[in-house]
Every structure is written in C-alpha cells, then in structure tokens.
Simulated assay, not measured.
Amino acid sequence: MESNINMELMKKMMIFTRKSHGHRPPEPPFGDHGHRPPEPHFGGLGPHEFGHPEPPFGECGPHGHRPPLSRERLLVVMAESSEGIRQKDLSEKLKIGQSSTSELINKLEDDGYIERRIDESDKRATLLFLTEKGQARATEVADERAAMFEDAFSKLTDDEKKTLSDLLDKLLSE
C-alpha cells in the first residue's frame, strides 16, 4: 500500500516536472529590434572536444556525472508499450521533436537497446521495441527512480502525502 502511494506521487511529480519544463515565460527582447545577440560559436565542439568524453550509456563519467537522461527516459516510456511504438507516438509522449527522437533512437539501436520491426498490421510502418538489454536498462532506471522517491517520500506522513497528491492534481489540472 505504501509503495503504491509513493509510485502515484512519483508519477504525478514526473508529469508535473515535464509539464512545467516545457512552459517557460517569454524572454524579454534584446536591443532595439527585439533580436537576441548571436550565440557564441564553438565550431561545433561538443564535450568530447574539451577532453570530457561522454561516458558509456548508463554509467557515470569521471566526475560522477551521467550522460543526459533523454535516452533513459525514452527506454522507460518504451517499456510501457510492450506491443511496440511508432516513432511519431514516441516523440509525442516524450514531448520532443521527431529529429531529436530519431537521433536518440539511432544511438540506442546502435548500442543494442532497441530494435525496429515491421508493423504486421501495416507493412509500411515500423514499430520500435526494446531488446532484452533495453528492457533490463528500463527496469533498472525505473527501480532507481522508485528508490529515490521512496526515500524522499518516507519523510512524509500519510496525511502529508495525501496533501501533496491533491496539490499536484491541482497543478496538473491547469
């Protein structure tokens, strides 16, 4: 019972975090013409050109930092679709552009976490599935998140958890 309440709160907080992340107030215009100053250009240099290679997927780098969690989030979302998922639907669920989704999919496929299969109900379409390796990593990520929230919510009483749940419902209803 306790775990169910914590999982419900975790899901609501994850939804709220994703929802609030995508809604930023407009930035004020720059200069007289409302244009932003040009972004500094580093000649396409990424972290690896600065001597900080990206650690292997799912592992911490030299300073204890993990790579961006986009790939892990994609795996967790895919794990919810055991019958496979189309790239377009995955983009919508993740609330990211199709080109970004495509890039993530290609990296995960190259690393053996996902595979593409022809949709048997529509031979023109392709579905994405987790491999055993991908399913294992998605489960690991979900378990890590659950443990993190279990620890955080253990400090709250049942009444406080109910209040938090009600507040999150109110924030999500906007």
Rank of each mutant, 00 (worst) to 15 (best):
S91G: 12
H52G: 00
F42G: 09
H23D: 15
T17Q: 13
E54V: 01
A146T: 11
E160F: 01
Q87Y: 09
A79S: 12
R116T: 07
I85T: 09
G58E: 04
S91T: 10
E109A: 01
E80K: 14
L74S: 04
E54P: 01
P62E: 11
R36D: 14
K161Y: 10
H23M: 14
G31I: 12
E132T: 07
P29D: 12
F16V: 11
M13L: 15
G44S: 12
E39H: 06
P28K: 15
S173W: 04
E39M: 14
K133Y: 05
G97V: 01
G97Q: 02
K12H: 09
S154H: 11
G97H: 02
M14K: 15
S20P: 02
V77G: 09
P67K: 10
M1I: 01
L9W: 08
M148T: 10
H35A: 07
A125D: 07
P62R: 12
Y113M: 03
F149K: 08
R137T: 06
K162G: 01
T139K: 14
G134I: 02
E150P: 00
H35Q: 15
L167G: 10
E54H: 00
K162H: 03
G134R: 11
H35D: 10
P47I: 02
E59L: 12
D32L: 15
L69H: 11
P25E: 09
R18Y: 09
P55R: 00
G58D: 04
K155L: 12
G22F: 05
S121M: 03
I118C: 04
D143S: 11
E144Y: 07
R124A: 06
H41K: 12
S81Y: 13
K93M: 06
E140C: 02
R86N: 05
L130R: 08
S82A: 08
M7E: 05
S102I: 02
E59F: 11
S99K: 04
K133P: 01
H48M: 00
